[in-house]
Design a protein around this nucleic acid. Sequence first.
RNA 1: GGGGCAGUAGGGUAGCCUGGUCCAUCCUAGAGCGUUUGGGACGCUUUGACGGCAGUUCAAAUCUGCCCUGCCCCA
Length: 477
Amino acid sequence: MDEETGALPRKDDFSRWYNEILWRAEIMDVRYPVKGLYVWYPYGFGIRQRAYTILREIMDRDHAETMFPLLIPKTEFMKEAEHIKGFEDEVYWVTHGGRTELDVPLALRPTSETAIYPMYSLWIRSHTDLPLKLYQIVNTFRYETKHTRPLIRLREITSFKEAHTVHATREEAAEQVETALRLYCEFYERLRVPVIVSRRPAWDKFPGADYTIALDTIMPDGKTLQIGTVHMLGDHFSRTYEITYEDVNGEQQYAYQTCYGISERSIAAVISVHGDDKGLVLPPEVAPIGIVIVPIIVGKRGDEVISAARALEAELRGAGYTAKVDDRDMRPGAKYYHWEMRGVPLRIEVGPRDIDANTVVAVTRTGRRTTLDRRGVVEGIHSILAQFGEEISDAVRQAMADRITVAANLEETAEAVKTGVAVVHWCGSQECAEKIEAVVDASIIGSEIRSDLIPVSNGPCIACGGNGTSTLVARTY
RNA sequence: GGGGCAGUAGGGUAGCCUGGUCCAUCCUAGAGCGUUUGGGACGCUUUGACGGCAGUUCAAAUCUGCCCUGCCCCA
């Protein structure tokens, strides 16, 4: 009778579901009065913090974190022609200091190549300075003209992790591209977000790059979301910014570079792939609250139940969990819904019955209920959460597999992209790409696919019949 | 980039065409009191709004213009 009470829109109405869950689960407040800029609620920011702690941990193995300025002088920004072409329509310019017009306008970084590389030019003298591998996590600004969307298409990206590496040779730079892909795949495994790696077609590569390899996930509505990119810059920027080094023979050489980035789209992916009709489902590693303890207060035993809950909370915190007793004056059921909306992986109920039996009841976010002996409760929880993590990994992997269809011709492709991703043979020509994109109303995502969900092969191009290779076609965000 | 629709309290809505009688209403909104608590409790009291700026007018949520913001469709 009350099933409608407080319900989210169903997840199969993904667009409405996404908009609502952002505020209902306290991730972002979209009411900030500037288009394309949104406010992180503390809870959403907690998810971001945990995800980015993982990202930092992965990056820090082989990179150093740094911080470059937000403002870039126009004179530096305008040096690399292809790069400019790719970004100039999206740049915010600072033109005044107070009431004084600036001699040189300053760009709010849309990405930081042109801020970083002039400094790299000063820093790099010798082959012994290489390789150089730095990254920063910063906000960037892009004057998006398309429909903005929280976490996905922003005018201020608040969480842009960008890495910039410099190498002595093209081969080393190419190897770094592969290393970066491995790091990013590991990051998304930790977030339990399945990804497909592919090489972007030439017209869709990063402006100023030789080639771009990207990570995409598939959203519940079947559109792909690009959640990581790795760019081989070759020597384009080093020639522009004079990044040279003296090699072992005493000769000046241009360096080779890569850059790669991940943004808060990673958070959008976690929310979107794992969530369900009841709200968020968070992997334990990114949940700001890993375990919520709900005291079941009946009759006169309230104090006893509360102190049992607190003792459990202390024990779980001691074991390294972020546990929280919810002692608000609400019915237990209301609390269950509250924490389910926020995706807390595990709920523990403690009531008089449990105290008497020396047990606790543990319920995962996906509804698996276990009665645990109060002694050894930490070990029991450890194994439940590990299993929960595997369970949601398997579920999203299966959901992604179900959205991938191998299509042999244009008709099948058009049908497949209505609900997911099509894998087709494509010859690589732009003419055929344009034909395919026009007929099926979707985009060529990439070829040289790397995904254990997708077998790749050669075959006749679905547009021209010539030699083709496996290629992803999908609607995109 | 083009087109359409919309913005009323924390959230959801009515009112707008036909300016005034408007003290609007509902809620998983807030505050307070009491009774409650093993899957969304209940009663009573109470708080709070017409996106912004300008204009028309005796009078604007309502009409006009510009701006801001959001949603949908098309390219």
